[in-house]
Amino acid sequence: MRWRRMAGVYRQYWRINILTTLEYRENFVVWFAFTFVYHGSSIAALWIVLSRFPSMNGWSFRDMAFLYALWMVAHALHNTLFSTVGEVPDHIRNGEFDRLLVRPLDTLFQAIATPGQVFPDELVLAIVTFVAATIYAGVHVDAMFLTFIPLIFIGGALIDLGINLIISTAAFWFVKVDALRWIFVQLEQEFTRYPVTIYTRGVRFVLTFVFPFAFMNYFPARYFLHKGMSGLGLPPVAGLLTPAIGIVFVALAYVFWRFGLNRYQGVGH
């Protein structure tokens, strides 16, 4: 019964999103152009660097394009399904968050299903890029690949959700967390762009075990591209662990969220 009600709310959420997008069409076009230039200039920068320096610790531009596309789909999947979690600090600040607390549905679910102007355009762009990158990098597509890749995307999106949720939870104490979020967005985007073998041991450790961004793209890419060099002595099969890592990480973030929620007292409206 509860699940059916949530499904109903979630359907309405998407209906409102799509209607809003259709209403503000020019706005949509401009932001899509932004998304396009954002990813386009990132890939262009990789291409420019690798046209002058053909090898990055044994990774060519083709490998790097696949690495980027893996991250891009997981990240876009997160942005499409869970970006609303990032608006929780705003809701806390202006007092709207308190409304969610008195309604008879899970608070986090309501935060996720707060309508805005979400549209799966970035996800579509990411999937197209991924298909192109897979062909370009010459990755062997078999049943194994087709089974694991969607799971890896979901796992990667969950890792992103975990980070997003942790930062939003911090807003229960600090109210204004924009700068913190900005730093994480920047660092994730820059540190996932290169194979982790170029980093120092400490950075590799953080990207693997603390904020497991390396599982969004590096470890899966290493597995599918058959790159021998290991990061932190993990075997290549570790690349298939992304879904499990995603679930564990998001579960830890959820525990932190519940902890913060139980202590939340409102900001005094």
Binding site: V49, P54, M56, N57
Partner: peptide
């Protein structure tokens, strides 16, 4: 840059 200069 260190990685790029080391291998190229």
């Amino acid at each position: 840059w260190t990685a790029l200069y080391a291998h190229n």
